[in-house]
Simulated scan of single mutants.
Amino acid sequence: MTNGHHVVVLGAGYTGMFSAVRLAHRTRRTGVKITLVNPSGRFVERLRMHQIAAGQKLPDHRIADLLAGTGVTFVQGAATAIDPEARRITVDGAAPLAYDTLVYALGSATDTGNAPGADTHAFTLNSPGPAGLFAARLTECSGAGGTVTVCGGGLTGIEAATEIAEAHPGVNVTLISPDEPGSMMGDEARAYLHRALSRLGITLVTGARVTKVLPEAVQLADGRILRSDACLWTAGVKVSPLAADAGIATDDRGLILTDATLRSVSHPEIHAVGDAAAIRMDFGQLHGSCQSGLPTAQYTADTIARLVRGKAVKPFRFGYFHQPLSLGRRDAVIQFTKADFTPARIRLTGRSAVWYKELVSGSPLLTYRYSKRMNVTTIISKGGRATRRPAA
């Protein structure tokens, strides 16, 4: 069964890359063939896009270089259709790909469709290109003492706002959020976060939702108009419609519905990982993050390696461990958590938190490098009692 078995991995983000590299190591003597498909030849460190937006230069990591020595074939092109019955993928600019097993790792992107004008007048952090365009606009605003609005008070919005304010003190930064930033943290970590926002001179507008993005302003649901020389949109995410269009079972957001082994409930030869999968634990559905995504990739690579050898697999188990949050280059706060993502008592702040956050942000590339030669684990917590039984 293993000889000639073809595994196609769609998407070379954090989870797709790890799935391919780890699977190559786990199946190196079985004859399994692995192909990784991605529109760009560049590996994007999504965890660092706010740094590019603030004007920093980051290393250019090429997918072919990261795959060197693994035996994985890289196909550069965008997947435009999946035929799950024929097990065939249409790739723009390349020949169709037949697969025996598919790993669906297309991830997510910022949703600019939930407010008119956001798609035309706002910038995003989806990739280095848009982040770089924002950085150029930010330089113009900095010289003129302009105002930047960051729409969305989640982790991405907070990291972007603090990075911008620290790197460009001449810019007026406004963070707009329907909820209190840091609401998922404990009281002390949240208080530290708000002191950092105040120290950096960030104007905080909470309990507000942006309903329209204009060329030089944003409009709130209560009718207020706020000046905005540059708008950075971080509010909400969307996933590729590829799975739903192919008739693969998805939820109402387009995430692939998975069983306890992260296989599609409608097409078990398809494994879904990271942001593209609807994965439930007893404590709830996992939210898209590198913290949960890499363990799904590790588990899926191990699962496929066992299945092609005819071995049984155990259900996926995962528990959260921390909420790392950078506050510019010189400050950070780390809220450690219980398995269900509720805050624990331990936290880190200041220099130790900066070191910890940088370790977290840089760990995926190290993981890929070492996974070529050994089984590197990214699963810090399996969730304890909360995940001993698969979610209903």
Rank of each mutant, 00 (worst) to 15 (best):
A53P: 05
D83F: 00
R42D: 14
A53I: 09
L58P: 12
G77S: 08
D65F: 05
S40I: 04
I52Q: 05
P84G: 07
R46E: 09
G41V: 07
K57T: 15
I63Q: 04
A98G: 13
T90C: 06
A78Y: 03
T90Y: 00
R46D: 05
A86I: 01
I82N: 00
L66I: 14
F74Y: 05
T70R: 07
Q56N: 12
A53L: 05
I82V: 08
D60G: 07
P96K: 03
R88I: 00
Q76K: 14
L66G: 02
G77L: 07
A81S: 13
L102K: 02
R42C: 03
G71F: 09
H50N: 13
F74D: 02
I63G: 04
A64W: 03
A81R: 10
I82W: 00
A98Y: 01
P59G: 12
D60T: 15
S40C: 06
V75Q: 03
R62H: 13
F74C: 04
L67D: 12
Q51C: 06
T70G: 07
A95M: 12
G93Q: 09
I82G: 01
G77P: 04
V44I: 10
I52S: 04
Q51F: 09
A54H: 11
L102R: 00
P96W: 02
D83L: 05
E45P: 02
A54R: 04
R88L: 11
R42V: 10
Q56G: 06
V91Q: 01
T80A: 10
K57V: 14
A86F: 00
A78E: 15
H50W: 05
D92Y: 05
A68S: 11
L67Q: 14
V72Q: 04
G93L: 12
R42Q: 14
A78T: 09
A81D: 05
P59V: 10
E45D: 08
L47T: 11
F74S: 01
R62Y: 13
A95F: 02
H61Y: 14
T101I: 02
A54Q: 06
F74T: 02
P59H: 15
G41A: 07
N38F: 03
T73S: 13
A94P: 05
